[in-house]
């Protein structure tokens, strides 16, 4: 999951989109007005941000409203939590094996 977040944030335009959304939701048209790049390119960036969980979308009539999904950043914390759990289990196994080896006659 962290790979997706990193990939999402590695493109400046996507970071700018997140910045635009900091104060509330916007339609893709409103977002596109802030950029020189094409509307389809903006849609593509929004798709990536959505896929990585950083942005959520709401449909109303024919319009799609995009907003920040703060939970997406909480996932990153969950990733780090899991990362340490997995690592510490491996550390326990490795260190106990080492201790047994050291104590062999």
């Amino acid at each position: 999951m962290i790979e997706k977040v990193i990939a999402s944030l590695s493109v400046p335009s996507r970071r700018e989109i997140l910045y635009l959304l900091r104060d509330g939701e916007l339609t893709s048209t409103a977002i596109a007005e802030h950029f020189e790049i094409s509307a389809p390119a903006i849609s593509q960036h929004l798709k990536v941000l959505q896929h990585s969980g950083l942005v959520a979308v709401r449909k109303s009539g024919t319009k799609r409203y995009y907003r920040i999904r703060k939970e997406g950043f909480k996932d990153l914390k969950a990733f780090i939590d899991q990362f340490w759990d997995d690592s510490l289990i491996r550390l326990k196994e490795a260190a106990e094996e080492e201790e047994r080896r050291n104590n062999e006659p």
Binding site: K77, D85, L88, L91, A95, E96, E98
Partner: peptide, 18 residues
């Protein structure tokens, strides 16, 4: 913001080397 505790059956010296 995150704390983990684990008991490891080895001396602090062995563990430190890791």
């Amino acid at each position: 913001i995150l704390t983990k505790r684990i008991f490891i059956e080895c001396s602090p010296k062995t563990l430190f080397s890791f």
